[in-house]
C-alpha cells in the first residue's frame, strides 16, 4: 500500500510518501499564508492510497480535504519508533514549539510535555539570535562550538534574550562566546523539560533544531547520554503520519 503523511508545521510543511516502509517521495516547503493551496499543489505531484495529516494546521487541512488527522505527538512517536525501535525518549524542537515524548517498547506514547506558549528555545528563537549575531542560521552551531563557556543569557523570552545578545556584543564579547551562551540557555531549559518527563534511553532528537550541532553536543553532555539524530530530523512527523495512515 502507498501511504502519505503530511506535517503542517508553523514554519514548514513536510510530505512523505511510503511504499510500505520505503520512502518514495519527500517534499518540504516553507508554510505560506494560504497553506491549503500549497497542500493542493504538493499533493498533485504524487499519488497514494491513504493519507493522514498532522501538525498545527491539521484541522484546517483535514476539513478542507476530508482527511483523517493525528496530533504531532502521536505522529512523531510513530515516525521515530519506525526509524529507531529502541527509542524511549523523543525530543522535538520545531519552528515554534518544543515537545518531549516518552514511549514504550511498542512505540506507544506514555507521557509528553509541550512548550507551546512562546517561541523561547525553538527554531524561531535561533533565527532571531543568529540575526543578532549577524551569522547565518546554518552556521550558528559551528560558531557556538568554537566559543568558550564563559557567558550566560538569563532571559528565555526571545525578545529579552535578543536584547541581552545585543548588549553582550556592544560590550565587546566575542560572537562565538555569545553564540555558545545562547545554546547553553536553550539546553538548560530543554534538559529540565526532559527530566520532568523522565529521561530514558535511547533518546532521539528530531525537528529542525536537531540540525544544530552545538545544541546536540552540549545537550548530550548536560544529559550525560547519547542523543541520536535521524538523517532527516524534520521528517519524522510526516513519516509517522504516513505509517499511521496504513491503519487509518
Amino acid at each position: 500500500m502507498i501511504t502519505a503523511g503530511l506535517d503542517i508545521g508553523s514554519c514548514t510543511i513536510e510530505l512523505v510518501v511510503l511504499d510500505e516502509d520505503r520512502p518514495i517521495f519527500t517534499r518540504r516547503s516553507e508554510t505560506s499564508f494560504d497553506y491549503p493551496e500549497q497542500v493542493r499543489a504538493l499533493l498533485s505531484e504524487t499519488e497514494y492510497d491513504r493519507i493522514l495529516v498532522t501538525g498545527y494546521g491539521r484541522h484546517l487541512v483535514a476539513r478542507e480535504f476530508g482527511m483523517g488527522h493525528v496530533t504531532e505527538i502521536k505522529a512523531h512517536a510513530a515516525g521515530v519508533h519506525h526509524l529507531v525501535p529502541e527509542a524511549r525518549t523523543i525530543l522535538d524542537i520545531g519552528g515554534q514549539d518544543t515537545k518531549v515524548i516518552s514511549l514504550d517498547k511498542q512505540g506507544k506514547v506514555t507521557a509528553f510535555e509541550m512548550n507551546d506558549r512562546c517561541s523561547a528555545g525553538t527554531g524561531r528563537f535561533f533565527e532571531v539570535m543568529a540575526q543578532a549575531l549577524a551569522c547565518r542560521i546554518g552556521e550558528l552551531g559551528d560558531l557556538a562550538l568554537s566559543g568558550a563557556d564563559r557567558l550566560r543569557i538569563s532571559s528565555m523570552c526571545t525578545v529579552f534574550a535578543e536584547t541581552e545578545v545585543v548588549a553582550l556584543r556592544a560590550r565587546g564579547e566575542a560572537p562565538e562566546d555569545v553564540a555558545h551562551a545562547v545554546v547553553v540557555s536553550v539546553v538548560y531549559r530543554v534538559s529540565s523539560m526532559i527530566r520532568r518527563v523522565g529521561l530514558r534511553e535511547k533518546a532521539v532528537f528530531c525537528g529542525g533544531v536537531a540540525r544544530n550541532k552545538a545544541v546536540v553536543q552540549i545537550l548530550a553532555q548536560e544529559l550525560g547520554c547519547g542523543l541520536f539524530v535521524p538523517e532527516a530530523p524534520d521528517f519524522t512527523g510526516a513519516m509517522g503520519a504516513a505509517i499511521l495512515a496504513r491503519g487509518s
Binding site: 498545527y56 493525528v70 504531532e72 505527538i73 506514547v109 506514555t110
Partner: peptide, 16 residues
Amino acid sequence: EDIEPLRTRVEAFLET
C-alpha cells in the same frame, strides 16, 4: 489565543 495548542495537548492525551 492558545486554543489550538491546547487542543493539541488534549488530543494527544486522548490518543494515549
